[in-house]
Computed example of a mutant assay.
Amino acid sequence: MPKYRKKPVVIEAELYRPGLEDGFKDAFVSIGQVVRGEKIKIQKRPFIHTLEGDHIISPGDYIITGVEGERYPCKPDIFEKTYEKVE
């Protein structure tokens, strides 16, 4: 099977902080175990609009702005494996 390497592209990214979201949505949140499963509640969570639809943002996520100006969240462990800082 042929192998491919991602072309080097410089992107902008910053750790999520309040104010970077596009709004807040209701989302299910686990609040611990109960006798017959997990207890959940609905909570407002920040989100951003992406090319694939709205994505919930979590504390610690990076918000990446791609080469066409598109934005999307990225979990910190994936971000650190995929990107390195450009000076």
Rank of each mutant, 00 (worst) to 15 (best):
G66A: 05
G66T: 07
L20H: 12
R36E: 12
K85W: 02
L51I: 06
A13V: 13
I40Q: 12
G69W: 01
D26P: 15
G60S: 14
P18F: 05
E21L: 12
Y72T: 10
K85L: 14
T50L: 01
F28K: 14
R17G: 11
I64P: 02
K7M: 01
I56D: 00
G23F: 05
E87W: 04
L20P: 05
G32I: 01
Q43S: 14
G32Y: 04
G66V: 02
R5N: 12
V35W: 09
G23R: 12
M1R: 09
P76T: 04
K25W: 00
E14D: 14
K6L: 10
S30I: 06
F28T: 15
D61G: 04
D54C: 11
D61H: 11
C74Q: 09
T65E: 07
R45C: 10
V35F: 15
V9H: 03
P8K: 08
Y83Q: 03
D77H: 10
V29F: 01
E70M: 06
G37E: 06
I11E: 12
R71F: 06
P46H: 10
I56T: 05
E84Y: 01
Y16S: 02
L15M: 14
E87L: 04
E21C: 11
V9D: 00
V34A: 15
I78V: 15
K41R: 15
F79T: 06
V9S: 01
E52F: 12
V67K: 15
R17Q: 14
E80H: 13
E68H: 02
E68R: 03
P2S: 03
Y4L: 11
A13W: 14
F79L: 06
P2G: 07
E84T: 11
E87Y: 12
I78Y: 06
Y72Q: 04
R17F: 09
I11K: 00
R45Y: 04
E68Y: 07
V86F: 02
Y72F: 13
V29T: 03
Q43V: 05
I31R: 04
T82W: 07
S30K: 09
D61V: 09
K7W: 07
P76W: 07
P59D: 14
Y62P: 03
F24T: 13
K25C: 10
R5H: 12
L51S: 10
I48W: 12
D22F: 09
T50I: 04
E52M: 05
Y4D: 04
F24E: 13
V67D: 14
Y62W: 15
K6Y: 06
C74T: 04
E68W: 11
G23A: 06
E52L: 13
S58Q: 02
R36N: 14
R5Y: 03
A13D: 03
S58N: 09
Y83H: 04
V9R: 08
E14S: 10
E12M: 13
K6T: 13
G19Y: 02
F47H: 08
E68I: 01
L20I: 14
G66Q: 00
S58E: 13
K75L: 05
Y16D: 03
T65F: 00
A13Y: 08
Q43A: 10
V34Y: 00
G69H: 03
I40H: 08
Y83A: 05
D26L: 11
K25Y: 10
T65C: 08
K39P: 01
P8V: 12
T65P: 05
V9E: 07
F28R: 13
E38P: 00
E12F: 07
P59C: 12
I78E: 11
V86K: 04
K3D: 09
K41T: 14
E87I: 07
K75Q: 13
P76R: 01
G60L: 06
